[in-house]
Amino acid sequence: MLDDLRDLYQEVIFDHNKNPRNFRLMDDADRQIDGFNPLCGDRITLFIKISDGKIADASFQGQGCAISTASASLMTDIVIGQTEQEAQSLFTLFHKMAIGEPVEMDELGKLAVLAGVCEYPARVKCATLPWHTLDALLKGAEEPVTTE
């Protein structure tokens, strides 16, 4: 019945939604920021630790749909160990993928499971909220980020 939905809701997404990685408070974070999608009420708080120019740790808290939760889970997993610049390039790449622009899927690795979101304009912001939040955090923003 819902087979065609599998492009969007892949098993990996259900897995990350049920057991999100890095879903924890970080008391000793170097930076933290809130992200908010006013349209659907999704909220995320993102924490990072920076050491030697690299993201030494990343975690998140908040509540959101399966897409945004899985996206935050995958994102924190992948950026740990990256330099700030690498994470920002990945954001650019991910954003392109989410809005349906051609990208080299290999460069996205695990993040490619979210490629289906470009077919669902109403859901693109669910997938990109964690990334916009990370981007703002890396740019040193302090005010909460919104997707609107």
Partner: peptide
């Protein structure tokens, strides 16, 4: 299950 997922499904 988040309502946003319900809406899409």
């Amino acid at each position: 299950i988040h309502p946003h997922d319900i809406g899409t499904m």
